[in-house]
Amino acid sequence: MIGFRLDARSGVPTYLQLVNQVKHALRLGLLEPGDRLPTAAEVVAALAINPNTVLKAYRELEREGLVAARPGTGTFVQRTLGRVGAADRARLHRQLVTWMRSANAAGLDREDVEALFEAARQDVAEDVA
C-alpha cells in the first residue's frame, strides 16, 4: 500500500502530485500489478483534501491504463512502469552470462571487463545521440 504526502509549496496541483507519486512507486516496484490503491476515504482521512481530487487522480491513472477501478472492491494496479519486462530481463541476463563466459575464456580480468563495458556504453550513447 502506498502512503501519499503533499507538498503545498511545490505549486504542482494536488491531483498531479498524487498521480506522480503513484507512478514513482510503480517505477520503483513499490507498487505491483494487483496491488490495491488506498480508497478515497483513506486518502482524505490522512491528507484532508477533497475526495474528488483523489478520484480525479485515479481517473487520470486509469486513463493511462496504469490502474483499473473494480466497482465495490477498489482501484487496482494494472501494469508496472518498470521499462523492462520480466521476459526481456531474463533474455538479456542470459546473453550477458554467455558473453562473460567468453571474456573469461579469453583471459580478461575484472577491470578489463569493466573498461570494455564502459566503452560499449559510450558507443551506444553516441549512437543514440
Binding site: 476515504a41 482521512a45 490522512a46 484532508a48
Partner: peptide, 13 residues
C-alpha cells in the same frame, strides 16, 4: 488538519 480530514472522510464515505 484533523477536523478537515474528518470532514473529508465523511464526504468520501
Amino acid at each position: 488538519h484533523d477536523v478537515m480530514a474528518l470532514l473529508m472522510e465523511t464526504v468520501a464515505l
